[in-house]
């Protein structure tokens, strides 16, 4: 698999470290009623039959965190963008 890092260009898979689901958002609340949101954020993951947005780290490159849109069935990579909008 090859990932086109927006900063470094197309590189081999081994340069990157996978983290996981990029669609979840860290809850802002520390109140007890936020328990469900925290459990979802920390533990529950979708495994979609199709496109998915994932966090990858260009650990052997520029150290940018990327959001990679990947087809879970074919491994086709449809988009790669910086996780931080203004790097």
């Amino acid at each position: 698999m090859r990932i086109r890092c927006p900063y470094c260009g197309e590189r081999a898979l081994e340069e990157f470290t996978y983290r996981g689901d990029a669609t979840v958002t860290r809850p802002g609340s520390l109140e007890p009623q936020a328990t469900g949101a925290w459990v979802d954020y920390v533990y529950l993951r979708d495994n979609p039959d199709g496109h998915h947005r994932e966090h990858w780290h260009h650990s052997a490159g520029c150290h940018a965190w990327l959001v990679v849109t990947r087809d879970m069935r074919t491994h086709e990579i449809l988009a790669v963008e910086f996780a931080r909008k203004e790097p």
Binding site: T17, A22, H57, S59, H63, W65, A83, R84, K85
Partner: peptide
């Protein structure tokens, strides 16, 4: 060492840019 660095970069770039 590597894990923590990666973790801090995640916090900086993804959580609190």
């Amino acid at each position: 060492a590597v894990r923590v660095m990666q973790h801090l970069e995640f916090c900086q770039q993804c959580l609190w840019p």
